[in-house]
């Protein structure tokens, strides 16, 4: 099932017609292509979390419509129809370990598939599989989730979402609060899962290095408005624009700019990862200026 997600002039207002009225999404039209790894960036209060809640029908647009797969969501869509949608779009919220509640790890992972109509036995089979996928050892499955370490709890929560076997996986700052080793392992795991299960991934992040390293599509929100949408190299191609909107470059890009400023060299395309930066520097050194032009 193709699961492109298309926003058409979507508006969302909190507490309309009250003194506390607040427009959180302002006329958003954007597409999240099937199979893409889309990064969603923007500051606190930019509307990211409201946007996320539209992806599986936790919120319905105040006006406009959202196409998810074959389903159209408007302000009139009934709750019953939204339930179906939630099977296909799994959201891993920030600090997802806060959602754990069952007596054992395996039961908690099996919770969602059971809710979506799988039998006890089927759900357990899926749960075991997903536990393996996120790297939870067999010995942990019968423990209480509250006995585990922070990093393990995070994995249980993620497995609990994967167990829905969604086509779209939404990750809201999934590595927040983990140590660097945990962070790296987690990001690599998502990359592998995406490839193995043909997932569409939406990643909310503040880490521009993650955007450069993993994403192929970037959505930038500011005060509820869409201010940019494109590939990472398009988004990061205008340093002045980034400064204006208080957004950072990936570290490699920042370094490349400092290098250009110091040496007067110009890179043909601004490198965004260490790998491409090192390659461009090496090719310059070896070939005496291959794709770097002395200016």
């Amino acid at each position: 099932m193709a699961m492109a997600i298309i926003f058409k002039t979507v508006n969302y207002t909190y507490q309309p017609d009250t003194p506390f009225e607040q427009q959180a999404l302002d006329n958003i039209s954007v597409e999240i292509p099937t199979g893409s790894y889309t990064a969603l960036i923007g500051h606190t209060g930019s509307g990211k979390s409201t946007f996320l809640q539209h992806l599986n029908g936790l919120l319905r647009p105040t006006s406009g419509e959202i196409l998810i797969g074959e389903q159209i969501i408007t302000t009139e869509t009934k709750n019953k129809e939204l339930g179906e949608l939630r099977k296909h779009v799994g959201i891993v919220f920030q600090f997802p370990e806060a959602q754990l509640f069952e007596e054992t790890v395996i039961k908690d992972i099996a919770f969602a598939p059971k809710n979506f109509g799988k039998t006890e036995a089927e759900a357990e089979i899926i749960a075991r599989k997903m536990a393996r996928q996120v790297g939870l050892g067999e010995e942990l499955l019968t423990k209480s989730p509250f006995e585990l370490s922070g990093g393990q709890m995070r994995r249980v929560a993620i497995a609990g979402i994967l167990a829905m076997e969604p086509e779209v996986l939404v990750l809201d700052e999934p590595t927040a609060g983990l140590d660097p080793k945990g962070r790296l392992e987690m990001m690599r795991m998502f990359k592998r899962l995406k490839e193995e299960q043909n997932l569409t991934v939406v990643l909310v992040t503040h880490q521009m290095d993650d955007v450069a390293n993993y994403a192929d599509n970037v959505i930038v929100l500011e005060e509820g408005k869409l201010i940019a949408n494109g590939t990472p190299s398009e988004i990061f191609s205008q340093p002045d624009w980034l400064v204006e909107h208080h957004l950072a470059l990936p570290k490699a890009g920042e370094f490349a700019l400092a290098f250009e400023k110091k040496t007067g060299y110009k890179f043909s395309t601004l490198p965004l990862t260490e790998v491409s930066l090192a390659r461009q520097i090496a090719s310059l050194l070896h070939e005496g200026g291959g794709d770097v032009h002395h200016g």
Binding site: P180, K181, A252, F255, E274, L277, A278, R279, A282
Partner: peptide, 24 residues
């Protein structure tokens, strides 16, 4: 060893790693 002890390696060290791979 940095990642193992719980610290994100500084950018310059990550770049060095990649430069070494490029034979520099």
């Amino acid at each position: 060893g940095l990642i193992k002890i719980g610290l994100e390696p500084p950018f310059s060290e990550k770049l060095k790693e990649e430069l070494i791979k490029q034979g520099i």
